[in-house]
């Protein structure tokens, strides 16, 4: 009943509808303007981690240790220790990853990242079958890192190594996952 009071009234007053339409447009426009003005900083804050390096840390060559304690053709898992900066935190030297170190009979060293190129699980060495195996999706790799079977799109990622004064160093870096080329992230 009440609803009709003002509707009827508005018929009597010409121009009342025009005024109301103007108010409607103004209300929508002003609300949208506040919305946009507020959304800009909110969205900027929301997306900012995607535009910054939030997790960083030591890079370059990592000291793996003495080369004397390697056995020929037996992969050895060595943690990579470095400083990690995670958003606001700085962690003193902690494990930031690991590599499989392999020495062949000519005392040449190969380092594989333990990260499976498929989806990033930790690759394991299966001593019995002499293969690297990723426990998540059953990718198998031979001792040289080539794919034997399974979903991995590429071989295990080899990392550059260097020997200085009897010590082995590895250039540790993470690669993009799930693609056939080896590209650093």
């Amino acid at each position: 009943m009440n609803e009709h009071t003002y509707k009827k009234e508005s018929v009597h007053h010409s121009g009342e509808n025009g005024r109301r339409n103007f108010l409607k447009i103004c209300s929508v426009v002003l609300t949208s303007l506040i919305g946009i003005a507020y959304a800009i900083p909110l969205i900027r804050a929301f997306i900012s981690p995607a535009m910054q390096d939030t997790v960083t840390g030591s890079s370059g060559l990592f000291d793996i240790g003495n080369t004397n304690d390697c056995e020929v053709n037996v992969p050895r898992k060595v943690p990579i220790k470095g400083i990690k900066i995670d958003a606001w935190n700085k962690f003193p030297t902690t494990a930031i990853g690991a590599v499989w170190i392999l020495m062949d009979k000519d005392k040449k060293f190969t380092a594989f990242s333990t990260i499976c190129p498929h989806l990033g699980c930790g690759v394991d060495w299966d001593e019995d079958s002499g293969r690297f195996v990723c426990p998540c999706h059953d990718s198998y790799f031979d001792i040289e890192g080539n794919v034997l079977s399974g979903p991995s799109p590429r071989r295990l990622d080899t990392l550059e190594t260097e020997i200085k004064q009897g010590k082995l160093f590895v250039k540790y870096q993470k690669m993009k996952l799930g693609i056939s080329e080896k590209i650093p992230t």
């Binding site: 900083p41 900027r44 804050a45 900012s48 981690p49 535009m51 958003a87 606001w88």
Partner: peptide, 27 residues
């Protein structure tokens, strides 16, 4: 989306919002 409620991280995460994110100080 950036705050971490723990005694070791709370201050740091708010510091991060305030000084490291875009417009975080404004929000």
């Amino acid at each position: 989306t950036c705050y971490s409620p723990s005694t070791t991280d709370a201050w740091g995460s708010v510091y991060y919002i305030q000084h490291k994110t875009f417009s975080g100080w404004f929000v």
